[in-house]
Computed example of a mutant assay.
Amino acid sequence: MQVTDILTLIPAQAAGGEGGALMGMLPIILMFVILYFLMIRPQMKRQKEHRNLVAALTKGDEVITSGGLLGKVTKVSDNYITLEVSELADKPVEIVLQRSAVSNVLPKGTIKSL
């Protein structure tokens, strides 16, 4: 073989090697795409729904907190809500919670039916 023959083979082998490297990385790229659609995207959707739920809280809503408390919202501020959880001697028992502690908003009248 001459030197010119060797030089012409080197670019052909390099081009074939690049294709092989891309094909070798394809399963890893495919795994990240699947991971995004199965785990990351649904989690972002749940976070957005929770953010909208917390932003829409108003006085009179009946809610369940992440700790399991059931009550009625009596006051709403920027970061906190006041939740009436019970009545004791005709005086309401109220607690102050962070807005993000609310996990579900219940239909009106749910507390009375329990």
Rank of each mutant, 00 (worst) to 15 (best):
A12W: 01
G67K: 11
P42D: 06
N52S: 12
R51W: 03
K45F: 08
N79I: 08
G68M: 06
M39I: 13
M39V: 13
G60C: 08
G17Q: 10
M25T: 02
L35K: 09
G67E: 12
K112W: 05
Q47P: 00
P92N: 13
V54M: 03
F32Q: 09
L22C: 07
S86Y: 07
S66P: 03
V63S: 10
T58E: 13
L35D: 14
V96I: 09
L69H: 12
A21L: 13
P107T: 04
K91P: 03
E87G: 05
Q47D: 10
I28R: 12
I64P: 06
S66H: 07
V73L: 07
G67W: 03
V85L: 12
G19D: 03
L38I: 11
K72E: 15
L106K: 05
D78S: 14
L106I: 02
G71S: 10
G16V: 00
S103L: 04
L30R: 10
D5T: 02
A56D: 15
K91F: 10
Y36N: 13
F32H: 11
S103R: 14
G71V: 01
R41V: 08
L70A: 12
L114A: 12
G19V: 00
L97C: 07
R99A: 11
S113I: 02
L83A: 06
V96C: 05
L53G: 04
G19F: 00
P42F: 01
R41F: 11
P107F: 04
G19K: 02
T65M: 05
V3Y: 11
K45H: 10
G60R: 08
L57Y: 05
V76M: 07
L7M: 03
G68W: 02
V73K: 07
H50W: 04
V33T: 13
K48W: 10
Y36R: 12
A14G: 00
T65D: 09
I40N: 13
V85P: 03
G71Y: 03
V3I: 02
L114R: 14
L53T: 01
D5I: 01
T58Q: 13
N52W: 04
P92R: 14
R99K: 15
I29E: 12
E18K: 13
E94I: 02
I28D: 10
P11A: 03
G20R: 06
T110R: 08
Q13F: 05
A12I: 01
E94P: 04
Y80H: 14
A14Y: 00
T110I: 04
F37H: 11
I40T: 15
I10Y: 00
N104P: 04
A101K: 09
L53C: 05
P107I: 01
L22H: 05
G24T: 03
E62R: 01
L88E: 13
A55I: 01
Y36L: 05
H50E: 11
V73M: 05
L57R: 04
K75Y: 08
P42Y: 04
S100T: 15
K75I: 06
Q43I: 09
G17L: 14
G71E: 09
I6F: 14
L106M: 09
M25I: 00
V3M: 09
D5L: 01
R41M: 12
L88A: 12
I28Y: 12
I10D: 06
H50A: 15
G16F: 00
A101H: 08
T8C: 08
Q47S: 09
E84V: 01
L9V: 01
